[in-house]
Design a protein around this nucleic acid. Sequence first.
DNA 1: TTCGGGTACTTGAAGCGTCAAGTATCGGTA
DNA 2: TACCGATACTTGACGCTTCAAGTACCCGAA
Lengths: 169, 169
Amino acid sequence: MEPTRWLSDGEQEVWQRMLAVLTLLPAELDGQLQRDADLTHFGYGVLALLSETPGRSRRMSELAALVNGSQSRLSHLVGRLERQGWVRRERADDDGRGSVAVLTDAGYAHLAASAPAHVARVRSLVFDVLTPTQVAQLGTITAALLARLSPAGGCPASTARRGNASDGS
Amino acid sequence: MEPTRWLSDGEQEVWQRMLAVLTLLPAELDGQLQRDADLTHFGYGVLALLSETPGRSRRMSELAALVNGSQSRLSHLVGRLERQGWVRRERADDDGRGSVAVLTDAGYAHLAASAPAHVARVRSLVFDVLTPTQVAQLGTITAALLARLSPAGGCPASTARRGNASDGS
DNA sequence: TTCGGGTACTTGAAGCGTCAAGTATCGGTA
DNA sequence: TACCGATACTTGACGCTTCAAGTACCCGAA
């Protein structure tokens, strides 16, 4: 057993702030979306991802991986989204076990209606308070963290991350 | 209504990675603590904070503010911690409405036993993958984000952030 | 002294996430 | 063809968080 390498005072300080951001930022995003769009941030992410995909549909397992959620979590969520009429489930034709989530027109409309306020919030909470240099640094830092967090490439969305309902496409 | 200022491609990319970190890092921390210490990361934070305080006790409302949680959340949590024998509640003597959470010896022992593995995890997930320069940049960036997120000073813990059970004191 | 509005905390119900099973299908093998 | 271990997803129970009330106490004013 190695002797524990505790955090230095400087590291402690940075870590405390990082923890606060990790707590407050998602809470803010969730709160805004909940109030304005009756949607979790996770739910928003799923709708957004579907909206970017040709056919506006995805296999459940792909979807789960792309938004970093468990299959179970996604299944429950899609169940709720389905009840709200924003998503519909279809059986995969190439694989009888699979399900495909399809974004309905109502779902697309709801997403389109919610996106501006959400993007405005993200801008005001994050990009407006950072200089372009800091944004670039944040990009490098998050890339390094992700490389450790999701060993599978560090870019879980490499398959399809281009444009999204939040970028006006 | 202003026309929506969508995110640029570069901002999108950084934001996607930031979201992934916001999802995966807390999940990792929670998972590790759950397995090794039967504790939420939030619960760990509360025990750690109590352990740093002279008297190992804090008013509920102070505690809630310091860990960025709601009073209700804290009340439920302390209830559970109490049932596990790690914390005890006392009535505040200066204010009949108030409660004070006190870390028990068992609670302190449990925290001390869990800290090394937790710190090791934080180190391996965060500080080991960043250069000292990046850590400094992260410090500046999180400070800027916090200034916007918690208007009340950006340093909610300014009252008492010195040393903690994770720094070996 | 006794209101009355605020503060500090607790409580119960409802929503979301995780975990552990369960069901259905696929694909390789005998 | 009939099996058998994987895979894809779903489901139910349980735990934690939030939200909305509820309780108890404080304090200033009438």
